[in-house]
Structure formats: C-alpha cells, structure tokens
C-alpha cells in the first residue's frame, strides 16, 4: 500500500525533529547574519568538538528515556569512572596508548551501570529514585573512598589522545584555527552503533517496546528484565567513555566539574522529541536537540550575547521547546478523531 505524499509529509511534521531542525537552522542563520562567523570552518569544528561529550551523554540519556526510565546519575558515574581509571593508571605508571584507559573505563562503567540496572530492572524500583541514590553513592565513592582531588597530570597515552586531532580548520578571516579532536570519531561510532542497535536488533526494538508498554513487552516475549539491565550497563559504558574523553580533552581530571550536567542533557534530549514517558524518539532528534543546547551555550557569544546570559537562553529554550511539544500533544489528543477520519480518506483514495 502506497501512502500519498501529502500524508507522508503530514506524518513527518507530526514529529518533533523537523521543528527542532528548523529552529536550529534559524538560529545558525541568525548567528551567521549577525556575526558572519558561524559557518566559518573553525567555528563548525569548535561546535563539533564541544558536542562530543554532551552528545555521548545525551545518547545514553536518550536510550534510558526511550525505555520509559530516567537516569540522573550519568555525570557522577562518568566522573567516578574517569577518575578511577586515571588514578589507577597513574599509580601503575602506565605509559601505553589510549586503548587500555578506554577499556578500563568501559569496564568500570559497566559495573556501575549494572549497579543501577540491578535495582531498576531486577527489583523494579523507580529509575528516578535509584539513579538519584546511585548518583550520590558514586560521588561518595569518588570523593570519600578514593579521596579524589584534581589530577593535573594524566597518563601520557590519554594526554596524546586528547591533543590528537583529525584535522585543523582555519578561519580565513581571523586566522583562528581549531582542531577536530580524534574523539569525535568515538562519538560518531557510538551514534552509528546505537542507531543500528535501535533499528536492526531485537534488543533495540525491545527498548522501544518496553517504553511503549512494559506489560505488552513481557507478553510478547521480550526478556524485559534482562533488556533493561543490559540497557543500564550499556548506558554506564557510554557515560564512562564520555568521562574519559572529557578527561583527555581537558588534559586533566577534575572530579566534580561534570556534576550537574544531567539536567541540560536531559533537556536537550527532550527538546529533540523524545517523550519523557518513553517509547517515542529518534537518535537523530536526540542529537539535534543536544546540538541546539550546545550551540546556545557556545555560540551566542558570537552575536554579542554575554556569556552570563547563557542560562537565560537555555532556560527559555527548554520552556519554549517543551511547550511546543505539550501543545502538539494536546492538539493531537483533541483531534484524534479528525486524524482518524482524514486517514481513512487517504487510505480510500489509494
């Protein structure tokens, strides 16, 4: 059965992504017009570079939201795992490359994620409360048990990874240069892997299914507890990876400076059209929403908005974005019947 073109377009515009994309585009064009600096190569590279860590976090938060849960522990998880990894390697006087640090971080991330997963999936406790508690536990382990302090020197392999770049972009007018960090590949890899997982594996469809209706998922034969558990393990690993990358990019390990990122990350994901109640959302939208937040946080300075106004814009953006989707939800529930009727007509036409 072929659906008609107008109907397909209508369906696309019922989603959030096109609106986010249009807002994003409008913002970019506005900044470009006012500053002439936005589409300069070095600014684009700077934004890509700034997207890596929030982008990874956002992918993790997105997966959890999709399954109908919520995770506020990822900054603490990432901090703990990045700190533990760095500290361990420093103690061992590790001189090798980036691979081992990343593997260690992934392992720690998996264990910490399993801690969340245990309570959320096996005992079925509310995700918000568990991750709130685990966030506090992770912080406590890091600052108490590991007695964390800022590590100004990090292992050489991590230093080099942090400094390495894919290419360097130069602004032809100002002559400013920006490096595209190698870690951008990590972001792309994770994004592609998650995309394929969501689209082409039963595990991925299970995440959507659980988010849509957990009871139906159980009855359909999804192993719901296992899927959820694995999901939190996976999200722990993604967050850990982001933590290590951030440490590398900053060339030092600051135990607390990622804490408090969770709200803006979740806001970005929701702006990108992911339903906070689960089951709906696309990876593309998630990245778009995060990009929007990153641009607001990084590029408003280009049009002369002082950095101290950053939060005003982010807050306003979150409120506006969420009211648009709230309005859409309201309208769609009001016009469900009409939608149904118009759909019938479309189907009949074919």
């Amino acid at each position: 059965m072929q659906t008609s073109l107008p109907f397909t377009i209508k369906r696309i515009f019922r989603r959030n992504e096109p609106y986010v994309f249009l807002v994003l585009l409008a913002l970019c064009v506005l900044i470009e017009i006012r500053s002439g600096q936005f589409f300069s190569p070095n600014n684009l590279v700077d934004i890509s570079s700034a997207l890596v860590v929030p982008g990874l976090f956002a992918i993790g938060a997105f997966l959890v939201l999709l399954s109908g849960g919520i995770d506020v522990s990822f900054p603490a998880l990432a901090s703990l795992s990045a700190y533990a990894t760095t500290k361990l390697l420093l103690v061992m006087d590790y001189q090798g490359g980036i691979l081992i640090p990343i593997l260690i971080a992934l392992l720690i991330g998996a264990v910490l994620g399993a801690f969340n997963g245990l309570f959320i999936s096996i005992l079925n406790l509310p995700a918000l409360i568990v991750t709130l508690g685990s966030s506090s536990v992770f912080k406590g382990v890091m600052q108490g048990a590991l007695n964390s302090k800022q590590l100004t020197v990090i292992p050489i392999g991590m230093q080099e990874f942090g400094k390495s770049s894919l290419f360097t972009a130069t602004n032809s007018i100002s002559g400013l240069t920006s490096r595209m960090p190698t870690s951008f590949i990590a972001f792309i890899l994770v994004a592609v892997a998650v995309f394929f997982m969501l689209r082409f594996t039963m595990f991925g469809r299970g995440i959507y299914g659980i988010g849509g209706s957990e009871v139906s998922a159980i009855r359909a034969g999804f192993r719901v507890k296992r899927t959820k558990f694995m999901l939190y393990v996976m999200v722990g690993m993604i967050a850990s990876l982001a933590g290590v990358i951030r440490t590398c990019m900053m060339q030092q390990c600051h135990p607390t400076n990622m804490l408090g990122m969770e709200m803006n990350i979740i806001a970005g994901v929701v702006l990108g059209g992911t339903l906070i109640t689960g089951g709906r959302g696309t990876l593309f939208g998630c990245v778009l929403g995060t990009l929007l937040i990153v641009i607001v946080e990084n590029s408003l300075i280009l049009i002369g908005v002082p950095t101290s106004f950053k939060s005003v814009f982010t807050g306003a953006l979150i409120i506006l974005g969420t009211s648009v989707s709230a309005y859409q939800m309201m309208r769609s529930s009001h016009s469900q019947r009409e939608k149904l009727l118009s759909r019938r007509e479309v189907v009949n036409e074919n």
């Binding site: 109640t277 106004f309 005003v312 807050g315 953006l317 979150i318 709230a326």
Partner: peptide, 27 residues
C-alpha cells in the same frame, strides 16, 4: 495551563532563574 510535564517545566524555569541571576551579577 501550558501542560508541560513538571520535571521539564521546572527544570527549564530553574535554568531561566539561574540565568537571571547570572545576568544580574555576571556570576
């Protein structure tokens, strides 16, 4: 009235209020 889920509405508003604070004091 706008029917935004409370967690998002207050998160956004919190960020906005913080923004007002930053703008007033430059941090």
């Amino acid at each position: 009235k706008v029917k935004i889920p409370a967690i998002l509405a207050t998160m956004g508003a919190g960020e906005l209020f913080r923004g007002v604070c930053m703008a007033l004091t430059n941090g």
